[in-house]
């Protein structure tokens, strides 16, 4: 067999393996996105129950609850898989509002001890943990794909196939901020 043919076969094999690896990474990102969507759906389903229970007690927080409802509708109209950047922005805003809501609940002892509310808050906590886990999986998959898209030689194949870098799902700003102990002693 002529050397040039062997060389061509090797090049084709390398190309094929890089192609497989890239497609796998791309599909992993898709799998991770749908994982996030499943968890976000659980959150959307829980919010009405949470707000309904709270509305009987938290009359002074109506504005906050309206904002949460608005963000939930906005988030449900979008899709994480189609536009992760925009969806992440809305989801992070929703996460921040839900955290504000949790803090507000502390001011209503009757609500805090309400059994339906306790259960709803526990479910929400569980869902938030699952969302955080799904986000870690998604970001790991995105990191793998982005490395492959950027690094030679798979970057050439990615360019030929039109595979682009994916967007990370960053944690909400207040989750990233480090705690300043001094703030608590002011």
């Amino acid at each position: 067999m002529p050397i040039s043919l062997i060389f061509l076969l090797i090049v084709l094999a390398v190309f094929y393996f890089l192609y497989i690896s890239l497609i796998k990474k791309k599909n992993k990102v898709k799998e991770a996105s749908s994982g996030i969507e499943v968890q976000l759906k659980k959150r959307y389903d829980l919010i009405p129950n949470l707000l309904q229970t709270a509305s009987k007690f938290m009359e002074h927080e109506k504005f906050l609850m309206e904002e949460i409802t608005k963000l939930r509708t906005e988030a449900m109209n979008g899709s994480f898989s189609n536009n992760p950047e925009q969806a992440a922005k809305i989801e992070n805003a929703l996460s921040n509002k839900l955290k504000e809501f949790n803090i507000s609940v502390e001011n209503y002892p009757d609500l805090k001890s309400n059994q339906t509310m306790v259960q709803a808050m526990d479910s929400m906590k569980d869902v938030e943990e699952h969302i955080a886990a799904a986000r870690r999986f998604y970001n790991a998959a995105v990191n793998d794909l982005n490395n492959a898209v950027e690094i030679f030689p798979s970057s050439i194949i990615a360019g030929l196939l039109g595979i682009k870098q994916a967007v990370f799902f960053d944690a909400p700003e207040n989750e990233k901020q480090s705690i300043n102990a001094g703030d608590f002693f002011k």
């Binding site: 991770a32 994982g35 943990e129 699952h130 955080a132 886990a133 799904a134 999986f137």
Partner: peptide
Amino acid sequence: DQIEARFLLT
């Protein structure tokens, strides 16, 4: 389960 593994191993 990729997500559950990360849910358990925070």
